[in-house]
Each structure stands twice: as C-alpha cells, then as structure tokens.
C-alpha cells in the first residue's frame, strides 16, 4: 500500500518544516535587536552600495536552465526505459529495443549544439 508507507514521511515533513522555523523563533529569545541605518545597508565590502542588484541583466545561465528542464524530462524517460529493459530484451521487434538509442544520440548532439551558444561565460 503506497499511502501507508508515506504516513511517516508526512510526519517527517511537518517536523522538517517546524525545525528551522522553531530554530529561527527560538533565536529571538537570545539575540539582541538593535537595527541601525548603517547596519541595514546592503553589504558591499564597506562601501556605500551602488544601485540595486535586481536589474535587468543578460545572465547567461538561462540556456543551461532550459537544457536542464529538457534533460530532466528525458532522464525520466530513460528511467522508465531502464525499468523495462529486461522485458524489452525478450521482445522480437528491434524498433522497441533500439529506438531509444536514436533518441539518446539526437539529445546528445542537440545539447552540444545548444551549448555552443554559451562558449564564453562572463560571470
């Protein structure tokens, strides 16, 4: 039964959520709280901060995030394939057996091509 084995996990999730929250609230009992305008400044190695960080900027990691999502989904397909491989070996159709390798090849070539765009990374 799937649900029964997840009962402790649910309880664990509640405890895991309460643990950091409890820690943060517990520190209120011990720590001082004297904010000053100078303390609340953004840290920039002692200098007065220049502008804000949340600007529009071309972060080059976007391409990696895009490929990551695709690969995540592909990995799930491969996982299902790995589970089914023993059964697939007994089937007679070569399409069922080997078409996944075609998929792997296309994925691999496409990824390497996409990464060509971000050859030089600035930050």
């Amino acid at each position: 039964m799937v649900l029964e084995s997840y009962v402790p996990v649910v309880i664990f999730a509640v405890v895991a959520l309460l643990f950091p929250l409890g820690t943060f609230f517990a520190t209120r009992l011990f720590r001082p709280d004297h904010p000053t305008p100078l303390k609340d400044l953004t840290y920039e190695c002692g200098e007065v901060p220049e502008g804000v960080a949340q600007i529009q900027f071309h972060f080059q990691y976007y391409m990696f995030a895009l490929i990551f999502v695709i690969f995540d989904v592909a990995a799930i397909f491969l996982l299902l394939w790995a589970f089914a491989w023993g059964g697939l070996l007994n089937s007679v159709s070569p399409v069922a057996k080997f078409s996944i390798f075609l998929f792997l090849g296309i994925m691999f070539v496409a990824t390497q091509y996409a990464l060509k765009k971000e050859e030089v990374i600035q930050i």
């Binding site: 649900l3 900027f57 972060f59 990691y61 976007y62 995030a65 895009l66 999502v69 989904v73 799930i76």
Partner: peptide, 27 residues
C-alpha cells in the same frame, strides 16, 4: 496513489521549472 508521478512532479516541476522561470524573470 501514484507515487512515481508524485516524485517526478517534485523533481521536474518543483525543482527545474521555477528555476527556469526565475532565470527568465531576470532577463
């Protein structure tokens, strides 16, 4: 009772897609 779909949902939709969104928002 679909354990597999649950875990895939967490890995793909909670782990990967919002990161893509945040990267996109920064653009």
């Amino acid at each position: 009772q679909s354990e597999f779909v649950f875990l895939i949902q967490i890995i793909v939709y909670a782990g990967a897609v919002p990161v893509l969104f945040v990267f996109g928002i920064m653009l």
